[in-house]
Design a protein around this nucleic acid. Structure first.
Length: 214
DNA sequence: AATTTTCTCAACCGCCCTTGA
DNA sequence: GTCAAGGGCGGTTGAGAAAAT
């Protein structure tokens, strides 16, 4: 918490040298003691910054490039279960980071919301029974505080998007399950220790409990 | 071809949780 | 039991790239 963040601390994009230096020291000391690594490496970065760089960019298990359709469906499915619990979702998708999934969600769900909005406008213009516009939570968040900034998302409720998605999935033999993935890398290993009671508490009837806990 | 708008994604911020003294 | 430090997470920002006009 009280990291030495004096004026000499660097911010902004990482250089190749910094990356190489960080990789070297993480290989040396492991990817846990970030504050320590930040200090001994000589990088003028905070421990947090080092950790973020490693987790989101330098970790060898990371996949690069576009999400596969399988992964996309997985994100949708898991988000419908867990909401904006990005790190938890990421743990179920090997090689993808919470940041990546978060960004994906923002951009692609915004698009989806806009498409849906267009659809609903087209429909409501023919039959004046508008239903969703101007109410409901932000497209971006199924549960948290609604802090949407852009305009488009303010007019289409997330609930309705999900209804649509569910309809699509029902009609298209949808079977991607996170636990089908091999969890090859420790970073992406399923958090089996995930407190079952907590899940049960948060989601009264969690349908995948058997799978989740072995 | 130039300008404007939109999209993408790396990185930061602030809060909360965990851990250890 | 308390407190401080470190780590983790979700939300947000901003620069550069791509697309549209």
């Amino acid at each position: 918490m009280m990291e030495k963040e004096d004026s000499t601390m660097r911010k902004g994009p990482w250089t190749e040298e910094e990356d190489a230096q960080l990789v070297f020291y993480v290989n040396l000391f492991g990817d846990r003691r970030w504050d320590f690594i930040a200090k001994v490496s000589g990088l003028k970065r905070t421990g947090k910054s080092c950790r973020l760089r490693w987790v989101n960019y330098l970790h060898p298990g990371l996949k690069r490039g576009k999400m596969t359709p399988h992964e996309e469906r997985l994100v949708l499915q898991l988000h419908s279960k867990w909401g904006n619990r990005w790190s938890r979702i990421a743990r179920k998708i090997p090689g993808r980071t919470d940041n990546e999934i978060k960004n994906y969600w923002r951009t692609h769900m915004r698009k989806k919301a806009q498409d849906q909005k267009k659809k609903s406008i087209a429909q409501s213009s023919s039959s004046s029974s508008s239903s969703s516009s101007t109410k409901g939570p932000s497209f971006y968040d199924t549960g948290g505080d609604n802090k949407s900034k852009t305009g488009a998302e303010e007019v289409y409720s997330m609930d309705e998007i999900w209804k649509d998605i569910e309809l699509c999935e029902e009609s298209s033999s949808f079977t991607p399950l996170a636990w089908d993935f091999p969890t090859d890398d420790s970073l992406w290993a399923v958090d089996e220790e995930e407190p079952k009671m907590l899940i049960a508490h948060q989601y009264d009837s969690f349908p995948f409990d058997n799978h989740m806990t072995g």
